Structures are given as structure tokens and as C-alpha cells.
Amino acid sequence: MMRIGLFLLTNIAVLIVASITLNLLGVNHYISGSGLDLGNLLVFCAVFGFAGSLISLLLSKTMAKMSTRTKIIEQPSNADEKWLLDTVAELAEKAGIKMPQVGIFPAQQANAFATGWNKNDALVAVSLGLLQRFRPEEVRAVMAHEIGHVANGDMVTLSLVQGVVNTFVMFFARVVGYFVDNMMRSNNQAGTGIGYYITVFVFEIIFGILASFVVAWFSRYREFRADAAGAHLSSNHAMIAALQRLQAEYGMPDQMPGQLTAFGISSHLKGGLMELMSSHPPLEKRIAALRQQV
């Protein structure tokens, strides 16, 4: 119920922000009697395309904590929590960022994630299963990987990439829809017909699938960068060992919410076409990339 509420609130916020922005910019209709106004259409698509990704970014910490039931460590209640706080503080100082919030989420699958709207107001969290089963140097490497994401500004950059992708998916779907609708209607008919809306709907799905390959490619690229940062902040040997441990536990069910999969250190991966749409490269490729740095 909480996730549904957050989803609805996010969408309402997107509509409100987008409507106000469009009114301030004076963008009302992009289709008129004289044809398609490409300038107004691009502004319209950009406002809606970026509004969703940026509002999600601003709400990312709240949504992550609620969806994963992450417990933020304010005051450590045991030796493990104190060690985790001290380790993250050391890594954050080494990376040149402010101390992020540190949390533990109750999942037995070995995973961790980082989120937040900027690198000095972030959250890093680790699953209880990883904390319990991994060796201290492996946990440290995992947290170094997440600190690497924060220091590299990956959450912001990924949101901007998603905003650009959203913009052009909406833009080109409406351009195609306009021309298809024009061909279907007689010349004396004004406005748009049902063909426009059907075509836009179909091509938003098609272009959205194609665009997801671009977003997934960028996400995989940033995983290699975060691994390199993790190796630098901890050690190459420890980072490789942590990824090998994740590889050994691959069969465990994925307990990360779908919206956070891209920000976790590990995700389930299938071969073939699914690999191209995955947010993470195969673990063996990540391990091979780190070994080349030795």
C-alpha cells in the first residue's frame, strides 16, 4: 500500500510541476490549424520527460527507505553497526564527499545500493544477508563500490539520461503519430483523429523499448566505473573477492524492488537479448575488467 501511495504521489507531483512549467513557458498546444509546431512539441516533451525523472530523483531516498524497509543507523546498537558506520565514514572521506546516511535492509540476498539527489546528501545501504555472510574486507569493498556511485554522481547522471530519453521517445512518437494521422484523414478534417492517439501509444512503446537499450548501456558502463572506484577506495583484491562472492550466491532470489535494481551492486541477469537490457554487466566481465587493472 505504501508503494502504491508513493507511486500515485509521484505521478501527481509530475503532473502539477509539468502543468505549471508549461504555463510559465507559454506552451499550450503543439498542433494547430497550421500544422505541427515542433518547437512547442519539443518543450512539451522535455518538461514531461524530465519532470518524472527529476522528481523521482528528489524522492529517491524516501522511496528507497520505504520500499526496502531500510533501517537508518543513527546510533549504532552493536559492534557490526559501529564498524559499518566507521567504514563508510572512512570511505566517504577518502572519496571527498560528505558522510552519507547508512542503513541496513532486511533481505537475505546479498546486495547493497546507493541513492540520493546529490553526492553530499546520499544514502548507502547494505542487506542484512550480505553483512552477515561476507568477510569484513568484502563488505568494505561493496560499500566502497556504492560510495563510488555517489562520488561519481551516477544517480544524477542516470536521471538526466533518462530525462533525455523520455523527451525524445515522446517527441518522435508524436511526430510519427501526426503524419500517420494526416495520411488516414481527409484533407478537410481539422485537428487530430483516433489514428493519432493509437499511433502515439504504439510508437511510445516501440521507441521506449529501443531507448531502454541506451539507458541500460549507460547503467552497465557506470557499474564498471563504480567497480574501479571501489577497487581504488578499498583494494583491487577485495573488490574482486566481493564480486566472486556475489557470483557464488547468484542463485538466491532477488529481493530488491524493481525501481532500485539499477542502483544495487548486483542484479539477476539472463543471457541473449536480456543481457543488453540489463542494468548490470555479467559479474565475470566485471571481475575480468578489474583483473586487467592489476
Rank of each mutant, 00 (worst) to 15 (best):
R133G: 07
A89S: 15
R140L: 00
P136S: 02
V142F: 01
L131A: 02
A122Y: 08
I73Y: 05
Q132Y: 01
T115Q: 08
T115A: 08
A64T: 01
H145N: 06
S60W: 03
Q108V: 06
R140T: 03
A64F: 04
E146M: 07
T70P: 04
L59A: 10
K71I: 09
T115M: 07
E74G: 13
G116C: 05
D121P: 00
I72N: 07
A92R: 10
P76K: 09
F105H: 10
P100E: 13
L85R: 13
V126A: 05
A144W: 01
F50M: 05
T68D: 05
D80I: 03
F134Q: 02
P106E: 11
S53F: 05
I97R: 11
T70I: 08
N111D: 10
L58F: 14
G103H: 05
Q75A: 14
N120W: 08
S60R: 05
D80R: 11
E90V: 08
K98I: 08
V126F: 04
S53Y: 07
G49M: 09
P76H: 10
H145Q: 03
N118Y: 13
N78H: 09
S127L: 04
G52L: 12
V142Q: 02
L91I: 10
P106V: 12
K119I: 01
T68I: 04
I73M: 02
M99R: 15
D121G: 00
